[in-house]
């Protein structure tokens, strides 16, 4: 089984979701017939890191035309390389979802999206209906394009002493697009662990009432070295930016501990967090639907509970040190 994994990185650093895709690749190819595909511009620093990963070959496209990894350019390249593989894999991040379906269509292949379990190399499980139903798909597609849900595959890094061989794609294979121009990006500054990789996530909902109050969630997260999450309602109300949204259409997380505060539990939100190992719910309404999926529930006023939690955690930290 030959597998091609597409590298996902930001500011020249590989993302945890990429290592999850690598875990899925290893499950599909125990013989480790895995190649990596890297597209970008001036990615020498990145390449030094990638070379140490235990894979067969790195297919590199280092060109100005790939600087912003536009789907029109990158999907086209992937489709040209894909014909040599049994599987092409990415994480179901916004990056993967933007690029891989386009590449699959160019190869006249279907794509199985958001895989959470690999039963065998032809059989995959994926959630539908916001995770309320699981669907098992058996495929005989010639090239199996998969996006995998990163939270369902523990990221692995297997380093090798032998550097992987690097194959550079010829410049004339890269298409020049006049019909699409990158204008700008506004990336959120990462000041705490990312939602995708954090052991603990603290999320807030509409009950926080304002952007100022939402800082309470951030303060608690900092005490726990946790990532911050939010419901769609909190994002729509402007308490926090869109990239913190957890849910069916936002990020899907499965941390060791998920603390949901002031969140009623719309199915769209539950879809993004219900695979968390331990779920804590803090809500004023004892009948809030989210209590149904809680391991530990605390009913009360969050404006009293959060400061008390912060206070208590500070005390615990002091006794430890």
């Amino acid at each position: 089984m030959k597998v091609l994994v597409i590298a996902e990185y930001e500011r020249q650093r590989l993302k945890p979701s990429f290592f999850s895709a690598l875990t899925a690749a290893k499950q599909l190819s125990p013989g480790n017939e895995i190649d990596l595909f890297v597209a970008g511009f001036e990615c020498n620093d990145l390449l030094q890191v990638i070379k140490k990963i235990n894979v067969k070959k790195i297919i590199l496209v280092d060109d100005k035309k790939c600087e912003h990894q536009l789907a029109e350019v990158v999907a086209d390249l992937i489709s040209k390389v894909a014909i040599h593989y049994d599987f092409v894999i990415m994480s179901a991040t916004t990056f993967g979802k933007n690029i891989l379906p386009r590449a699959a269509a160019l190869c006249d292949c279907t794509l199985i999206a958001d895989v959470v379990q690999i039963i065998d190399p032809a059989t995959f499980v994926r959630p539908i209906y916001a995770g309320n139903v699981l669907e098992t798909i058996q495929t005989s597609e010639k090239i199996k394009f998969l996006t995998i849900r990163a939270s369902a595959f523990e990221p692995t890094l297997i380093e090798s002493d032998i550097e992987a061989e690097v194959e550079c794609i010829k410049e004339d294979l890269i298409s020049s697009r006049q019909d699409i121009v990158f204008i700008s990006s506004e990336l959120t500054e990462q000041t705490r662990p990312s939602l995708e990789s954090a052991r603990i996530v603290v999320s807030g909902g509409r009950a926080l009432k304002s952007k100022e109050n939402f800082k309470l969630i951030e303060d608690l997260a900092d005490k726990l070295h946790a990532a911050v999450g939010a419901t769609r309602a909190a994002v729509d109300a402007g308490f926090i930016s869109n990239d913190f949204q957890v849910g069916q259409t936002g990020k899907i997380v499965a941390p060791q501990l998920y603390i949901a505060i002031g969140i009623s539990g719309a199915i769209q939100h539950l879809a993004g967090m219900k695979e968390s190992k331990v779920i804590v719910v803090i809500n004023q309404d004892p009948d809030a639907p989210i209590f149904k999926i809680a391991d530990y529930g605390l009913v009360g006023d969050l404006f009293q509970i959060i400061p008390a939690l912060i206070n208590e955690l500070e005390k615990c930290n002091k006794t430890l040190t």
Binding site: C109, T110, I112, T123, P127, I128, G131, N132, V133, L134, E135, T136, I137, Q138, T139, S140, E141, K142, K274, I279, V280, F291, K292, I293, A294, D295, Y296, G297, L298, V299, I305, A308, L309, E312
Partner: peptide
Amino acid sequence: NYKIVNTSLPISSRKKIKVNSVQEL
């Protein structure tokens, strides 16, 4: 080139313990 061979409901088992204070939590 694929078929859906099964649809099922996910299994979830949560403790559903109510705690009464921050200290207990």
